[in-house]
Design a protein around this nucleic acid. Structure first.
Length: 287
DNA sequence: ACCCAGGGTGACG
DNA sequence: CGTCACCATGGG
């Protein structure tokens, strides 16, 4: 159950299961939530908002009445995370993840922003990804000044498609510069990312892999973090280590064994994955 | 100098 | 189908 209240232009969402703003913002799913004075500032669906946590409540400011549902959905507050954490708790292999990952929510981000962000993420680290994405926004993202804040939106597909490769390299994108440009152009030319929401996981993944700089892992991030595929399971170096340690007693699994183990986790395996990922990074698993 | 980071691409078997 | 060097960049 979710309690929703709205007064003085501030939205308060209180889920009945544990919520952690800090873990949700820091778990590596999104790269534009900046920590500041007891909260976070982020741009959600093109709107700059300040996020704070009070008890188990998430506060979003500013928020107009018409925007309430949109924020509820972005922060995935309609989903029953109590049952998800219960599944983790019941699994002896995954139980330990909760101590550092309880309260995570998977945000429903913009597909294009997520696509470009995770193209940048390839063979890169979170701090640098944040820096490059911030540079993109400050360079060619629309500058917005509303009643409360001044901020940049994430660039449009056309804006990134028009950006010279050299500029992308100056921002730190390195060899990913042409991937960003080509993929942005494909969206600017009319490719409908949102349509992938309604495709089966395997087909949606295959579609995303036609973009430059997108392989299975980046595709799964886009599907999980922006297109509602809760069973997309991104396998990066951290998850490979974690799965090897937690599921296969330190041994390297075959591809079949790996797929089987993920399949057994059920329809929200990708969300479970994010708890494990955050745990692995926080506990420095294997490093 | 070397290794690593939310990997992908292209070449070669 | 699988493997593998290579790819920019910054931090440890």
């Amino acid at each position: 159950m979710l309690q929703v209240s709205h007064e003085f232009g501030c939205l308060t969402l209180t889920p009945s299961s544990p919520f952690s703003l800090k873990r949700s913002c820091a778990c590596g799913q999104a790269f534009r939530f900046q920590e500041e004075e007891g909260g976070y500032f982020g741009v959600v669906n093109g709107r700059g908002v300040r996020l704070t946590q009070n008890g188990n409540s998430l506060k979003v400011f500013p928020c107009a009445k018409e925007e309430i549902l949109q924020f509820v959905r972005y922060f995935d507050m309609e989903r029953d995370y109590g049952s998800i954490e219960l599944q983790l708790e019941r699994d002896e292999r995954l139980r330990a993840c909760l101590s550092s990952a309880s309260g995570i929510r998977i945000f429903n981000q913009d597909p294009f922003e997520t696509l470009i962000s995770f193209i940048i993420s390839a063979n890169n680290n979170v701090k640098r990804i944040q820096k490059i994405v911030a540079g993109l926004c400050e360079s060619v993202g629309e500058l917005v000044t509303d009643d409360v804040y001044t901020y940049h939106r994430f660039p449009t597909p056309q804006a990134l498609a028009d950006l010279p490769e050299e500029t992308l390299r100056e921002l730190g994108a390195g060899y990913r510069a042409p991937f960003i440009k080509q993929s942005a152009k494909k969206v600017a030319d009319g490719y409908d990312l949102a349509a992938l929401r309604n495709l089966p996981l395997t087909e949606a993944r295959k579609e995303l892999c036609t973009f430059a700089g997108v392989g299975a892992k980046v595709a799964d991030c886009v599907l999980l973090f922006s297109l509602g595929h809760a069973n997309a399971f991104p396998m990066d170096v951290w998850m490979k280590r974690a799965v090897r340690e937690l599921f296969f007693d330190g041994e390297e699994p075959t591809k079949r064994e790996l797929e089987g183990a993920i399949e057994k986790l059920g329809p929200v395996s990708g969300i479970l994955q994010q708890f494990v990922f955050h745990y692995a990074r926080e506990s420095g698993l294997g490093a």
